[in-house]
Simulated assay, not measured.
Amino acid sequence: MSRNGLYALVAVLAVAVVAFAIYTYQQQQSQPGIEVRIDEQGVSIDGNG
């Protein structure tokens, strides 16, 4: 395999890793969840689902 081919393969793999990381992050952000806070004003419960 030539050096240019190797560089192209590394670039394609790097792009795939970045794309997968972005996809995973977006999937985690869209999942419903519940946030419970306890502070001076009392207890508050926020849900995004």
Rank of each mutant, 00 (worst) to 15 (best):
S2C: 09
S2R: 12
S2D: 14
R3Y: 05
R3S: 11
N4T: 12
N4Y: 13
G5R: 10
G5N: 14
G5A: 11
L6P: 00
L6M: 14
Y7M: 13
A8T: 06
A8L: 13
L9K: 15
L9F: 08
V10T: 13
V10K: 07
A11G: 13
V12A: 14
V12C: 09
L13Y: 06
L13V: 13
A14Y: 03
A14D: 01
A14I: 09
A16Q: 04
V17W: 05
V17Y: 08
V18R: 06
V18F: 15
V18S: 09
V18G: 04
A19Q: 03
F20K: 07
F20Q: 05
A21F: 03
A21E: 05
A21H: 05
I22D: 02
Y23W: 13
Y23D: 03
T24R: 12
Y25C: 12
Q27R: 14
S30F: 03
S30P: 00
Q31S: 10
Q31E: 12
P32S: 09
G33L: 08
I34H: 04
I34Q: 06
I34R: 05
I34L: 12
E35M: 10
V36R: 01
V36A: 06
V36L: 12
R37H: 02
I38G: 04
D39Q: 04
E40L: 09
Q41V: 04
G42H: 04
V43A: 02
S44F: 05
S44A: 07
G47N: 12
N48H: 15
N48C: 01
G49T: 08
